[in-house]
Design a protein around this nucleic acid. Sequence first.
DNA 1: GCAAATAATTCAACCTTCAAACCATATTTA
DNA 2: TAAATATGGTTTGAAGGTTGAATTATTTGC
Lengths: 165, 165
Amino acid sequence: MSISAPDRTDESLIALRRILRATELFARDLAQAVGLSPAQLRVLQIVAERRSVTPKALANQMGVSQATVTALVDKLVARGMVERIPSEQDRRQTNIVATQVGSAHLENAPDALQQRYVAAFARLRDWEQAQLVSSLERVADMLDAQDIDASPVLTTGDIQSGRKG
Amino acid sequence: MSISAPDRTDESLIALRRILRATELFARDLAQAVGLSPAQLRVLQIVAERRSVTPKALANQMGVSQATVTALVDKLVARGMVERIPSEQDRRQTNIVATQVGSAHLENAPDALQQRYVAAFARLRDWEQAQLVSSLERVADMLDAQDIDASPVLTTGDIQSGRKG
DNA sequence: GCAAATAATTCAACCTTCAAACCATATTTA
DNA sequence: TAAATATGGTTTGAAGGTTGAATTATTTGC
C-alpha cells in the first residue's frame, strides 16, 4: 500500500528472473555441447569437484532423491564418465568417482557463460566487485536462510584463478 | 595469475549458486503445494500474469519447444486451470487464458519464498535497495546479454505492492 | 543373536522435452 | 484465382528425469 519504494521490488525480481533464466538456458546448451543431459552434467561436476562422493551426499547436495541419483549415475557409468567404488569403511556405501574420460569431458567443455561472466566480473573495478559480492550474498541470504553446502560450481571447469581443492 | 581480487569471483559464483538453488528447490515445493508440477505452475503463472498468451509466446518465454507447451497446456486444461480460446484475428492462433479456478489456485498458493524475500527486501534502507537492484541488474547483464522478455514473475501471486496489469 | 536404522538399488508410474510429421490457416507470388 | 510458401499448433514416438514404495545388504544398538 505504501508508495515509498514502489517498483524496486519488482525490478529486483525481474533481474533475479533474468539471472535464473540465463543460467537455466545456458545449462541446457552446455550439457548438450558436452553430450550429456543437464542433470547428468551436474552430477559429473559435483563428482569431479569433490574427489569422491556417495549417492546420499549427492542427493542431498542436488536436492533430489537417492533413486534419482542412482538413475543418473547409471547413465554416467554407462557412458564411462564415472565409476562406482564400494566403500571399505562402510560396505553399505558406494563412492562415486570421475574417470579420466569424465574429467576430460569436463575440462574440454566450453564454458561460454562462465567465461563471459568471469571475464565481465574481472573487468569491474575493485570496489564494484566487492559491492556485487556483498549484494549477491545478501540476496542469497534472503532467499535461502538455510544451511546449504554450495560449492563454487556454477557450470564447469574450475574457476580461472587457480584454486586447487 | 594476478592476486588482486582472487576469491571474489568464487564468492560471487557461490552466492549465485545459492540463489539458484534456493529458487529451484522452492519452485518444487510451491508447485507441489499447489498440486501442479513446476513446469505446469510456470505456465499458469505466465498465463495469469498476461491476460492471454499464445503457445508460441509461451514457448519463447519459457525457452522450450511448442510441443512441450502443448503438452503442458493439455494438463492444465484437463485440470480446469486454463482454457484454449481460438483467436479471431488469426485462426491459426490459440489464446490461452486462466480460468477462475486457475486464478484462485494462484491466489491461494503459499508464497513463502517470495514473502520472505519481499519482506526482507522491504526492510532494507532505501539506498540499500537501490544498490541491490543495481547489482542484480548488472549480474543479469553479464549473464544473459541477450534480449529476454522477463516479466516480474518469480514465483506466484502478484507482488504485494499493488500493481494491476 | 536380533531388531532397528542406514545406504543403495530396483520397480512402476508419471512428468518433461523434443524432433519430425501433420493439419489448418495466412501470406506471397505467379 | 491458384499454387507455393510460411506460420501456428498439435500429434506421435522416443529418451530422460523424478519419485515413493519395496528390496537387499550392512551396520548399529540392545
